[in-house]
């Protein structure tokens, strides 16, 4: 008994530190950061007349739900967002695989992808509105074109990372092509595809909002703009809360978990 206590005391300065008191644990720190953020918001709302406070935003939020505006607009936007992402994923994976397989196709696609990465979403939003007018085509195209290069770059990185030695060895030992793809290429590439899709989701969400802001008559972006144009920043902030919460849950909770699962084989070793 006493030796155990003694050992703990002597090992404390060199080995594991003592557990922190309750107010200094990680959980307490995180919670207090949220409280601090809320206080900061209240102070800002008091300092700047145009910044809506939390109370006003909550009232607006409840009102929007009661009016039945939330789910309709979210549904419309989700459809456009999903369709655009699908196009971006299919195109991006195809180009990424080509880029990863040979140095020549990599050289060929390098510049178009670099240009694509540099074009801001707002430019695609403007161009597609001028091309297609108001409707569903402009947001879908904006999402697809903004997100595609990010998927391509990540998939290319994954395909490049497949161990050449393992590939050569399995071929030398006569492992069938189907098994090579299933057990060697797919596990190595899946994580990078998910990483690419994560980028695409973040970029695409911003793109769909921008596109709807400038060129749609419904959807989340349109509704946010409606409040902004009406100079009712409380309503606008309520929608900001909605679309930020949505993307944070999608990215931090769902996609991060998927990404950790996909990279399990790598991180365990």
């Amino acid at each position: 008994m006493s030796t155990a206590v003694q050992r703990r005391e002597t090992s404390a300065p060199t080995g594991e530190p003592a557990p922190p008191p309750w107010y200094a644990t990680d959980l307490a720190a995180r919670l207090s950061s949220y409280v601090f953020g809320l206080l900061l918001w209240i102070v800002l709302a008091m300092a700047f007349e145009r910044v809506p406070g939390p109370d006003e935003v909550v009232v607006r939020l409840v009102q929007e739900f009661q009016l039945g505006q939330v789910f309709g607009h979210f549904g419309t936007t989700m459809f456009r967002f999903g369709l655009g992402l699908l196009v971006a994923a299919v195109g991006g994976i195809a180009i990424g695989v080509l880029m990863g397989l040979s140095p020549i196709s990599r050289a060929f696609f390098e510049s178009p992808v670099l240009v694509g990465l540099s074009i801001p979403a707002i430019i695609w939003a403007f161009l597609t509105v001028m091309w297609f007018g108001f409707g569903w085509k402009a947001p879908v195209t904006t999402v697809a074109l903004s997100a595609l290069p990010f998927v391509a770059v990540n998939v290319a990185k994954g395909v490049l990372g497949v161990s050449r030695d393992l590939r050569d060895m399995s071929r030398a030992y006569g492992v069938s092509r189907a098994r090579r793809i299933r057990e060697l290429v797919l596990p190595a590439v899946t994580g990078y595809i998910i990483a690419g899709v994560r980028f695409a989701v973040i970029i695409g969400w911003n793109a769909v909002l921008l596109s709807e802001w400038f060129g749609a008559t419904d959807g989340v972006g349109f509704r946010s703009r409606y409040w902004y144009d009406a100079n009712r920043f409380g309503g606008f902030a309520a929608w900001v809360v909605l679309f930020v919460v949505f993307i944070v849950i999608l990215d931090r909770v769902i996609l991060e978990r998927a990404s950790r699962r996909a990279f399990r084989w790598r991180d365990e070793s």
Binding site: R30, S33, Y34, G37, A121, I202, W205, N206, L209, L210, W213, G221, V240, F243, V244, I247, V248, D251, R252
Partner: peptide, 13 residues
């Protein structure tokens, strides 16, 4: 949390 979430928030915001 603040640092990681701020990378996810759309630029429009």
């Amino acid at each position: 949390d603040g640092v990681t979430i701020s990378g996810t928030v759309p630029a429009l915001t």
